[in-house]
Write a protein that binds this DNA or RNA. Sequence first.
DNA 1: GCCATGGCTAGTA
DNA 2: GCCATGGCTAGTA
Length: 107
Amino acid sequence: MTPFTARVVRLIQGIPEGRVMTYGQIARRAGSPRGARQVVRILHAMSERHRLPWHRVVNARGEIAIPDAAGREMQAQLLRREGVAVDAGGRVDLARFMHEPEWDAGW
DNA sequence: GCCATGGCTAGTA
DNA sequence: GCCATGGCTAGTA
């Protein structure tokens, strides 16, 4: 695991219940302002092994961005279960639910 | 080294 | 257009 990957993992692990972060926001906090797509990759590769709350990551517009319908539905359920309002279009109000970590992953 | 990958995104038209 | 990875390949040693 590279240092960048480790920082991304820690940031995602630090998202509390009932809050979300965006791909780009995580990339910025991990020191790679335009690395949003790397966050996608890491989510795929590391979610299981590192017990990442993958469902707390949405795109810059607050939308659930999983390709297949079943996955989108599952993410919406997981979020609602912890108190995040997801509208019919699969959108979350970032003004209400976005998590801003106190710390930038140390680098 | 090269190249595909990927659930993106800032900022035009 | 961006860019960090992993896998594969040509082509040296």
